[in-house]
Amino acid sequence: MKRLFPLAVICAALTGCNATKEPIYYYGGYNTAVYAFLKADSITVEEQISMLEQTIADATNKNKAVAPGLHAHLGMLYFEAGNSSQGITHFETEKSLFPESVQYIDFLLKSAQGA
């Protein structure tokens, strides 16, 4: 019984510390924008772009990292809106922030540019 008490205290301490951990990434309106995109009739592409740009601004103001995929999704929206230079910029930003996405983003970039 004496051995279980220290173990219980350690587990409780670790659990308590874990409960206050903040998320690594800032999502803001990202999930809402993705849902709107998939629903296709909720809000316009321009409104989705605005929502994601605001999410990036909020993350910057809070010194938080933006969520993986946010710049890629924004780039796709810019391509859909006819602004390929902004689309490329956000695809490149996604690749620099998340190097593990390079192959997929390169595929999206080739697809968006009609290659």
Results as ranks from 00 to 15, higher is better:
Asp41Arg: 15
Leu4Asn: 07
Leu70His: 04
Asp58Val: 03
Asp58Ile: 03
Ser42Ala: 14
His71Phe: 13
Lys2Tyr: 09
Ala19Met: 09
Pro99Val: 06
Gln86Glu: 15
Thr60Asp: 14
Cys17Asp: 02
Lys21Trp: 07
His73Ala: 08
Ile56His: 02
Leu109Ala: 01
Glu53Pro: 03
Cys11Phe: 14
Gly16Gln: 00
Asp106Lys: 05
Phe5Ala: 09
Asp106Cys: 07
Leu52Ala: 03
Val9Phe: 09
Gly82Ala: 12
Phe91Glu: 01
Lys110His: 05
Asp106Leu: 13
Leu108Tyr: 05
Cys17Phe: 14
Gly69Met: 10
Leu4His: 03
His90Ile: 09
Gly29Arg: 07
Pro23Val: 02
Ala33Gln: 05
Leu70Tyr: 00
Ala65Ser: 13
Tyr104Asp: 04
Ser50Met: 14
Gly87Asn: 00
Val9Asp: 06
Ile10Asn: 04
Glu92Met: 08
Asn31Cys: 03
Val102Asn: 06
Ala59Trp: 09
Phe79Gly: 00
His73Cys: 05
Met76Pro: 01
Glu47Ile: 10
Thr44Val: 07
Ala59Thr: 11
Glu80His: 08
Glu46Val: 13
Cys11Ala: 15
Gly69Ser: 12
Gln113Pro: 01
Val102Ile: 15
Thr20Gly: 05
Pro6Trp: 04
Tyr78Gln: 08
Val45Leu: 13
His71Thr: 11
Thr60Trp: 04
Ser84Thr: 15
Pro68His: 06
Pro23Gly: 02
Thr93Ser: 15
Met51Arg: 09
Leu38Cys: 03
Cys17Lys: 01
Pro23Thr: 08
Pro99Glu: 12
Ala8Leu: 15
Met51Glu: 05
Lys21His: 06
Asp106Gln: 09
Lys95Trp: 11
Glu94Thr: 02
Gly87Ala: 06
Thr93Pro: 08
Glu100Gly: 13
Lys95Pro: 02
Glu94Asn: 05
Thr93Gln: 15
Ile43Trp: 07
Ala8Lys: 03
Gln48Arg: 14
Asn18Phe: 15
Glu100Val: 09
Ala65Asp: 12
Val9Glu: 07
Lys110Ala: 08
Gly114Gln: 11
Ala13His: 03
Thr44Ile: 06
Asp58Leu: 01
Asn61Met: 06
Ser50Cys: 13
Ala8Val: 14
Lys64Thr: 02
Arg3Trp: 12
Asn18Pro: 00
Leu7Gly: 08
Phe79Ser: 03
Gln113Asp: 05
Ile56Trp: 05
Pro23Met: 09
Tyr78Arg: 02
Leu14His: 04
Leu70Ile: 08
Tyr78Glu: 05
Phe107Met: 10
Gly82Lys: 13
Ala115Ser: 13
Ser96Leu: 12
Ser96Tyr: 08
Asp106Tyr: 06
Met76His: 07
Phe79Thr: 00
His90Asn: 15
Tyr78Cys: 05
Glu100Arg: 04
Ala8Trp: 08
Phe5Asp: 00
Tyr30Val: 02
Ser111Asp: 14
Thr44Glu: 13
Tyr26Ile: 06
